[in-house]
Design a protein around this nucleic acid. Sequence first.
DNA 1: ATGTCCTAACTATTAGGA
Length: 261
Amino acid sequence: MRLATWNVNGLRARLDYIDLWLQDRQPDIVGLQELKTPDDVFPHEHFEALGYQALVHGQKSWNGVAILAKHPMTLKQQGLQDQEDFGARLITAEVTTPKGTVFDFTTVYCPNGKTLEHADFGRKLEWYKSLNAYWQQNAVAKHLICGDFNIVPEAIDGWRGEQGEGTIFYTKEERQHLQDFVDLGLTDLFRNRYPDRQEFSWWDYRGGAFHRKHGLRIDFLLATQPLVDATTEVIIDRDYRRKIEDLTASDHAPVFADLNI
DNA sequence: ATGTCCTAACTATTAGGA
């Protein structure tokens, strides 16, 4: 079972590129973020032709999340209570695998926060509090949450390293919200498997950041222990941050994990 | 140079991204 997360930075602009990746990597379940697509024009038929059903929580212009699945799934949640004025950023489905394993799959597009001085930074922290409450209210033994968290967990996860400490994405307050999920029993699948590797999942489009290795690891798959124990591989798919012929990549790479479930 | 790139939007400039 291959589970993936990808901030696509505009689903409609990325559709041909997404096809290439789906056909190459053959993921079973994919959490997508930053659709920038209204629900009424989401290309369901397009993904059905590739073997995927889609559940969508989108909006016009910004944000938006979706789950693509090759296996049966049912919608459990769209959006966070009291946070919907901050955009369409969460969706949860219950998935049943061919082996009969049932688990919850949540994907999130966490707020950026803009700058420490901007009102959106405080709202980002509040949004994380709501996410934590949602998580506790919907506790199940097998649950994976993936997405764009817009937080650099440790110095190794940002190109600026220790120089970044205290700036946005690297603050104690933001990191504490990630730690709260660890305290609730969730594990970062990539960091758990590769404790010392520096790999990034996002690079700025500007200034040749990708080639200068100026990136951040802000896209994660977090899972409860039964799913951690079933994990056999975790890949940050940086090949798919590159331009492919005339197709522009997202500024985020896909991240996926393989699980025996 | 509050630079650079990319997307979506009342198609031209602006907002948002991280």
